[in-house]
Amino acid sequence: MLKYLLKKVIHLIFVMLIVSILVFISIRVIPGDSAEVILRTNGIEPTVESIERFREELGLNQPLLVQYIEWLTGVLRGDFGRSFITGRPVLEEVWYRFPATLELTAGGVVVMLLLSLPVGILAAVFKNTAYDHLGRILALLGASVPSFWLGMMLIYWLAVKQSFFPVMGRGSLQHLILPAFTLGLGMAATYSRLLRASMLEVLKQDYIRVARAKGLQERSIILKHALRNALIPVITAFGVSFGHLLGGTVVVETVFTWPGMGRFVVDAIFSRDYPVIQAYVLVMALVFVTVNFLVDLIYQFLDPRINFERGS
């Protein structure tokens, strides 16, 4: 068990190290001289002297390896450099917006659970009935709606036409509902289908038949015995979907002017604020890899059949 954990953690660190190298190199391979591009986008005339001074400032004149090691030690100490635009430390900027993105993602997960659990379970229990078909059609629709459009429509109908919700921004629970719904709907659609399939699989198992033969209430069979096992494959998929949610926050934050990292990075992309993009990618990778690591652990905990030593 410990050996397994250690192996996983080493793998995690290795992956993050490679990602950091890629993130570091990415700035060096962008088309054109990065120093010139950066100066130009900041409205500074790229003369020979200004380029030279800027290169020195960024340490661009040193060998690549030295640059990387210096950069990495900085990053490990939390120093991602300064934003080209605001001039403030990038970590401070990103850290300041991180809770907003986390709140939105958590909201998305809650919406996903609230929608997909009942729809998925009922669709499996009432297989091939009108309810099942309705569930399928709703899931297909939910998976087909572009989230940015859904967000705009919700704002238009529920915030502008009827003022049920605030139009934009973050603050109360009222602010969170529309963005969280927009973010979670697509994922809820996928999950309701996944849960239905997994539930049907479990309901075919012998132990469910035993439970029925014992005369247990159907309700308790479904919710206590079947659901627990049906959730296992669903939880495994959660690691990957969490990534989709993280990616989705970029779009949703833009639509709802939610003050999170996603909107910040979109702005950074247009102003070519590379340190911000770098920090964003690294933070996202770290969050994503860590969540997948945790999901892996939970998965093994939930399903004792899986051997810690052998599972790859």
């Binding site: 993050m16 990534g243 990616g247 994503f288």
Partner: peptide, 17 residues
């Protein structure tokens, strides 16, 4: 190791719109 949309966003962002 990166969510696909984040990766695409980063690459598209670095290359320019």
């Amino acid at each position: 190791a990166l969510p696909s949309l984040v990766l695409a966003l980063a690459i598209a962002g670095l290359l320019g719109p």
